[in-house]
């Protein structure tokens, strides 16, 4: 069995290496990916969206539909883990998983976490808000926000983190982030443009159209950040406690 697996992997590896020879060189301006659309984005995106970071403008504006469903995928992944693992009092599990030994509270760890968590959250908000100008955006900021809550749950315990952020609220907000994204897109539809064509907001907010694109992107990034934050936290509390939310790692 093991030899067959090794053989299959070797054959696949050789095939992949042969295929990799045909890939364009890194950063090749003549590669198919960069001859059709890249020039347009590089030249026009600042005039059209007033966002200096082209990655953000492509991700949240030109490819906004993709990003919306990426957020939906994250939401679905979180919900699936919840469905499989979550155990309530009514739905007792037959198998009791071996719970790792938990030593008593560590005051150094808890004080350090208490100092770190606000810094992490502030930095995450900066990453979300500054995604227009520097690397970052909703996904990264949401993950950092989520990991600040995970740090809280790791250094204290899950109960303490859940006391600050109830499970019901976590699930409500994880759906709310996606809905916020979709609502911004739908509003454009009702204002007489295409879905997620943020230019429609210009007349309503009294700003120029590129600025409306920029604000629309900020709105959807906030939606993404909320969903990612809630799903990351929900994934952690379900996986680390084995589904009963009593104790974590």
């Amino acid at each position: 069995m093991k030899k067959t697996a090794l053989l299959i992997i070797a054959v696949l590896g050789i095939l992949l290496l042969r295929a990799a020879e045909d890939l364009p060189f890194w950063g090749d301006p003549q590669s198919p990916a960069s001859v059709h659309l890249s020039d347009y984005y590089l030249e026009e995106s600042y005039e059209e969206t007033s966002v200096p970071n082209i990655v953000t403008s492509v991700l949240a504006d030109y490819r906004g539909y993709d990003t919306m469903f990426e957020t939906v995928v994250i939401f679905c992944a979180g919900i699936t883990v919840l469905i499989v693992l979550r155990r309530t009092h009514r739905r007792r599990a037959k198998v009791i998983s071996p719970r790792p030994e938990r030593p008593g509270a560590d005051i150094i760890l808890q004080t350090a976490a208490r100092l770190l968590v606000p810094m992490m959250q502030l930095f995450a908000l900066y990453v979300v808000a500054h995604g227009h100008h520097s690397p970052g955006g909703g996904f990264q900021g949401g993950v950092i926000l989520g990991s600040s809550l995970i740090l809280l749950a790791l250094s204290y315990d899950i109960q303490m983190a859940l006391h600050r952020f109830k499970e019901k609220l976590v699930l409500l907000f994880s759906a709310g982030g996606v809905l916020l994204y979709a609502a911004i897109g739908l509003a454009c539809l009702f204002l007489g443009r295409n879905f997620l064509a943020y230019g429609a907001w210009a007349a309503l907010l009294g700003i120029s159209e590129p600025e409306a694109h920029s604000h629309g992107m900020l709105g959807v990034e906030i939606g993404v950040a909320i969903t990612v934050l809630c799903i990351m936290f929900s994934l952690y509390i379900d996986l680390a406690s084995g589904g009963d939310l009593d104790e974590g790692l």
């Binding site: 953000t56 990264q140 993950v143 950092i144 990991s147 995970i150 996986l239 790692l249």
Partner: peptide, 27 residues
């Protein structure tokens, strides 16, 4: 020079997913 991808990799790959894998591995 793919700094956006690097940022995501650092936050998701090296940060959260390690914690999630550890949490699962202990159970």
């Amino acid at each position: 020079l793919a700094v956006d991808v690097a940022f995501t990799e650092a936050a998701v790959g090296a940060g959260v997913s390690t914690v999630l894998l550890l949490g699962t591995a202990l159970h």
